[in-house]
Amino acid sequence: MIPADLKYTGQHEWLRLEGDIATVGITDFAQEQLTDIVFVDLPEAGRKVLVGDSVAVLESVKSVSDVYSPLAGEVVEVNTTLEANPQLVNEDPFGTGWMVKLKVANKAGLDKLMDSAAYQAYLDSANH
């Protein structure tokens, strides 16, 4: 259920690092908690973000939630498909439901992210 090749945050974002490009999304657990996503507010390409900055806003029927950047960098691509199809975040959170790609400025903070085993343990511990 939890892909082994991704890194995870305590706020249920995932990150896939390929070279210096990081793809960011939210986990299956997060989408289930949020319920139906009906609107995704994405940043402009070119925006620079620091660790913990909001890189996207997800709105469910009832709530508004930020997606926080796990690393610092520059937004190089956003998943515009989500504008017309926000439900992809629910249907395929680890795949077509991704939100942004960052050109990573530096990898500071990468060691603070969890691997899939640690994230699974985190979910099981119910501390989230």
């Binding site: 319920t35 139906d36 009906v38 469910s60 029927v61 009832k62």
Partner: peptide
């Protein structure tokens, strides 16, 4: 109860 399945399906 806030929802049982998904709010959109319930609506």
């Amino acid at each position: 109860p806030l929802y049982y399945s998904q709010p959109l399906a319930e609506h």
